[in-house]
Design a binder for these strands. Sequence first.
DNA 1: ATAACAGTTGAACAACTATTCAACTATTAG
DNA 2: CTAATAGTTGAATAGTTGTTCAACTGTTAT
Lengths: 119, 119
Amino acid sequence: MTEKDIMCCKHNFVHEDKVNLVEHEMPKEENLLGVTELFKVLGDPTRTKILSVLYTQELCVCDISKVLNMTKSAISHQLKILKMARLIQSRKAGKEVYYALADDHVGKIYRMAIEHVME
Amino acid sequence: MTEKDIMCCKHNFVHEDKVNLVEHEMPKEENLLGVTELFKVLGDPTRTKILSVLYTQELCVCDISKVLNMTKSAISHQLKILKMARLIQSRKAGKEVYYALADDHVGKIYRMAIEHVME
DNA sequence: ATAACAGTTGAACAACTATTCAACTATTAG
DNA sequence: CTAATAGTTGAATAGTTGTTCAACTGTTAT
């Protein structure tokens, strides 16, 4: 019997009642993966910093590059990921593209995380 | 002049007032990295699932393995990461080790994310 | 039309990370 | 003491991902 065999946790030794309850209460796979995806997008230093500056106000790509001291290319790549995750929105004004948080909910999540870290 | 040159965003073309304001409002690097680390830990499907089951009640490693249909080794590795991030706590009872969410705040963050995803 | 600038994009490389595997510790039952 | 079970751990592998680089689009001004 190897570790590979998931039945190493034989039915006899698993707390069946607990497992059944938990399985019942668990959100749908689809929603859990959505949560994972949300956190994964937020879990990168560049993207966290972008959110933190957009939390104050909307900015163009060039401004963000300046504040974070990174190339426009690197910023643009990350902006795309944030936008696909619907965490930010953009509007075009001439040659410039301005980015802002998608809605209040995103700001709320960011603020909550900051508060949690600062205790 | 290459893209590499961060001064491609010459001072003339950057919105200096905005940049200055944002730099001033921005949280300390240390705290931002803390936020990133928090999200990074949460941004893995296995760890998200572990949180979701512990959100219902405390469980031993074997139970978690059963519910997620993964080996104890894989679960144990992820539990360690969650514990180092102070998102969960453990207590030993005989041969078994029971894990639970570290505090209400963790549950609150998890619930908020689930609600955000489910809209 | 042409030059200059803002921004985007795809490929490639380097760094990171989750799972597997095998070996290990520790606790309990016989 | 010995066997069996719960859990941990380190190394290795395979998959993922962020930045760089170079080339590109689109807009504005001369």
